[in-house]
């Protein structure tokens, strides 16, 4: 009968790749058997084990690449665990907030011109009368400034060290 193996060593068979030839090419006229012919000549037990190991390898590879979200959700937190975590996170946030002081430049500093800024900020906005007053006055001032002229009264260039006549 055509037994493909020189020795009945199943462990060697499990380690080999599925596409690798099962026997070495010692005979010149031997053609490697692939596909279904390969399994047709193998013992049934060995064939099933080979397929199972390959299937396990594929499954293992898929498991390492997949994050099972449903499995994570199934690990529901108990009430006390939830409270413990909330307390831990709160304490860490408090440490960050009240921890080492940040440089003063990172804080918004109000000007010191107002002793009670909230009273000023809560007041009414600038009245329309004031806006009209300053706008009209500025326009009139520009018109009035057009009349200003520089009158020449004395020499603009003065020579130092020259005797005055």
């Amino acid at each position: 009968m055509g037994c493909c193996f020189g020795k009945d060593d199943d462990s060697k068979l499990l380690d080999t790749d599925s596409n690798a030839p099962l026997i070495e090419e010692r005979d010149a006229g031997y053609r490697p058997i692939r596909g279904s012919d390969q399994f047709s000549q193998s013992p049934n037990g060995v064939q099933i084990g080979d397929q199972q190991s390959e299937l396990n390898k594929v499954l293992q590879r898929a498991v390492t690449n997949v994050i099972d979200v449903s499995a994570i959700d199934s690990q529901a937190l108990e009430q006390h665990e939830y409270m413990d975590r909330a307390r831990t996170y709160s304490s860490r946030v408090a440490v960050v907030v009240t921890g080492p002081k940040k440089p003063l430049s990172s804080f918004l500093r109000l000007p010191k011109g107002v002793s009670m800024p909230y009273s000023v900020l809560s007041e009414e906005p600038v009245s329309v009368d004031d806006i009209n007053l300053i706008t009209q006055t500025a326009a009139d001032a520009w018109k009035a400034s057009q009349d200003i002229q520089v009158t020449h009264k004395e020499n603009l260039v003065v020579q130092f060290g020259m005797p005055q006549n």
Partner: peptide, 17 residues
Amino acid sequence: ESDKGNVLIKTHQDVTI
């Protein structure tokens, strides 16, 4: 705005008041 009154500033053309 300050405790000592308001200062309104406006520029028209090249004149500031």
